[in-house]
Design a protein around this nucleic acid. Structure first.
Lengths: 304, 304
DNA sequence: CGTGACCATATATTTTATATATGGGTTATG
DNA sequence: CATAACCCATATATAAAATATATGGTCACG
């Protein structure tokens, strides 16, 4: 009772003749006779009544025929689905995003574009910090990540740079420097720096401190924020200042103003994270699309 | 892409190991490795991620697994249905009944009993005359018939006698003999005999005429009725008398009285008609049940 | 009464799956 | 650190099964 037998059964039923069915199946008549006979023996029912002119379905055969057709259909669907998965037109893609990254206009743009190109692919988004995203990648909990390099395990995670995002200084409303659109870091040397735990984004963390060091100052460290975007409310509360990726200026939380930074300014690098082995077409597609989008420039960059 | 491959796929997915799946499948590990590898190549997707400790489904594999299970399920159902058909527990039985036979209490009784024993079998009933029933049998339009022998083609239709049903004389109301419960045929020698066309039931037709002949009389032939039961209204209309199977006395058409017949009385034979070749279990079951019922005697015979 | 259409059977061939033997890589264990 | 255990992959050999070829039988049709 193989797929083959279902095909034989249906073909004979549809042509009403073993000989013609054999032609249609691209085989000779005797093996088809033999196979259908064996099938009937296995099932214990005779599917066809042999006549001098071809064969006709028995009552039992009529009963079983639609079931056989269904199975053949489902098998075809199975194969088509598999091919769809193989070509990256179907399936599920789990995307991990580092903190504050969904605020970059390019990300929702990329997701919209991907849904247009591959509408049968379902997506799931997850927001986390860079080290956790790497772990999730390696544990196969997500398929691709947009994170802030460097990654903890560069041997197993491939990093494709996307963008060096400028950063902004966030000042609390009412701060004396609020009226200046562009600031030097040394103007802030006495302001407590609100920053996230280094573990959540070592690359960005280090970039910020390096910029201070290049400016020749060491800021007092203020309260720690739970995450990158979490610095903003603390700034608004007057606990200090913070340095955030440009995309965060979209957070229209009252009580904070954003200001560009003169050289030396830290930058918040952005990159794709992939497992080095086992890349699926879905991952490749999405990754290439992201690179293309960022190559052309952020499609609607926030003009200051 | 065979049924086998679906089984292999599901087994590996469920055990999480090629080695253990091979055990469960009653085969060795290498062929299973090889087959699943070929399957993956054919489909173009990798279904499993090989690890040092067994294998785990890929995203694509997770997607395809339920489909594979469904196909295996349907295949199992297919086989079970076929076996059900083989044992006569499922399917469809087309029963043909000669004229006036549904009025025999044994017939609805048999049908009810059969539905109890084989509830998944659907039945269709058809009423016709004996020669037409034989044709329908041979043309595979019905599967079994209850008819009045003899049959036109005894070489291809098997006849199993069931019953010699007594006959009754039908008299119009107001007839001088109405008050006599039992009549001799010769009492009716001048009454026009209403009878059906011989083609519709040659056996019964000849039995009636033979009885007259044995009684030494030749009745005048009255109007022809369209069928056996169709004689009753004509009798009621006063066009003559008729001789009908006992079961017809159930037709409580006003205007007619029924009377038993002294020897020599014709009898209306009843028999099962089957195709000699190709008997299915359903046909055998129903046939045997009918024989048993009639052997025990009509379960609720009409007591005069 | 011969001819063609069609299915069944028998034997041969080829394909295909499976078993056996073996190697490599990773993880647990003394 | 070395050894053993586990598990998957590969290579070759064997066995099984489907298919092709050849042929015969039956029934309809001209």
């Amino acid at each position: 009772m193989d797929i083959r037998h279902f095909r034989y059964f249906v073909a004979i039923a549809e042509t009403g003749s073993i000989t013609r069915a054999a032609e249609r199946l691209g085989m000779e008549q005797p093996p088809l006779s033999q196979q259908i006979r064996r099938l009937e023996e296995d099932l214990g029912v005779s599917l066809f009544r042999r006549q001098t002119r071809g064969v006709v379905l028995t009552e039992e055969g009529r009963n079983l025929l639609p079931r056989a057709r269904l199975i053949l259909d489902l098998r075809r669907q199975f194969i088509e689905t598999a091919h769809g998965l193989a070509r990256g037109e179907q399936g599920h893609l789990r995307i991990g995003l580092a903190g504050a990254i969904p605020l970059l206009p390019a990300i929702p743009f990329a997701i919209r574009q991907f849904r247009t190109i591959a509408p049968s692919v379902t997506l799931s988004l997850e927001e986390s910090n860079t080290p956790a995203l790497c772990e999730a990648l390696l544990a196969h909990k997500i398929d691709i990540a947009v994170l802030r390099p460097p990654v903890p395990d560069p041997e197993r995670v491939q990093v494709i740079p996307l963008l060096d995002e400028p950063t902004l200084i966030a000042l609390p409303k009412g701060h004396p420097l609020t009226d200046q659109p562009r600031l030097h870091l040394h103007q802030l040397k006495d302001e407590p720096l609100i920053i996230f735990p280094r573990e959540l984004g070592p690359g960005f963390y280090d970039a910020i401190l390096a910029a201070y060091q290049n400016a020749g100052i060491t800021p007092p460290l203020g309260q720690q924020a739970p995450q990158v975007a979490g610095t903003i409310p603390l700034v608004a509360a007057g606990l200090g200042i913070s340095i955030v990726p440009q995309s965060l200026h979209q957070l229209h939380t009252g009580g904070v103003t954003f200001h560009q930074i003169h050289h030396p300014a830290p930058s918040a690098s952005l990159a794709i994270g992939l497992r080095k082995e086992n890349s699926t077409p879905l991952v490749t597609h999405f990754s290439q699309m992201l690179q293309q989008i960022f190559l052309k420039g952020d499609p609607s960059p926030p003009e200051q």
